[in-house]
Design a protein around this nucleic acid. Structure first.
Length: 161
DNA sequence: GCCAACGTTGGC
DNA sequence: GCCAACGTTGGC
């Protein structure tokens, strides 16, 4: 039996890379993740076809703004090998890569962005890592129930293709 | 292995 | 711009 697809949330500062940018590019390499917990989720659990909530962070009104799709298996993050790159890691080598990426593709923009402020007062999303105090993870798992709820809040039918 | 200092994230 | 909450680093 095929693996059940999973749902995730990724954060991005829109000044650095926004959902608009993802739609413009059509596909992007999700590079620069330098946190072990986030890395482990990507490396060990993210697979092609998984759904991804795309969240804009570090702005006046942080919000989930769209849905993306994991478009590749995890593979070594090339920026870790590039001296001079902001994400260069001198302790990583081609033989022993430390960091991974996946490719992401845009799926649907949410007709109504779902603000963090909105989620924080919603008992339906209790347990969602995003609304836990002090959470700084940039890649986190989202339950199917929470994923579907966020889509509905954003004005999408979770059962529509 | 402890823990203080430091750096980063990200909401506000 | 502030600062709380973390994660990492490095001296010991």
């Amino acid at each position: 039996m095929a693996r059940m697809s999973r749902a995730w949330l990724v954060k991005s500062e829109p000044d650095a890379y926004s959902y608009d940018d993802l739609e413009r590019d059509g596909r992007t390499m999700w590079d620069g993740v330098r946190n072990y917990q986030a890395r482990n989720f990507m490396r060990d659990e993210m697979r092609v076809g998984d759904a991804v909530l795309f969240y804009h962070s570090n702005i006046a009104a942080p919000a989930v703004v769209g849905v993306a799709r994991v478009a590749s298996e995890p593979y070594p993050d090339p920026t870790q090998f590039e001296a001079g790159d902001p994400h260069f890691d001198p302790k990583a080598s081609e033989d022993a890569p430390r960091w991974v990426v996946v490719d992401l593709e845009p799926m649907r923009r949410l007709p109504e962005p779902v603000a963090l402020e909105r989620l924080k007062e919603d008992p339906e999303v209790e347990g969602l890592a995003l609304v836990r105090r002090g959470n700084r993870l940039s890649v986190m798992p989202v339950s199917h129930a929470h994923y579907r709820h966020v889509l509905r809040l954003g004005g999408l039918d979770p059962d529509a293709p």
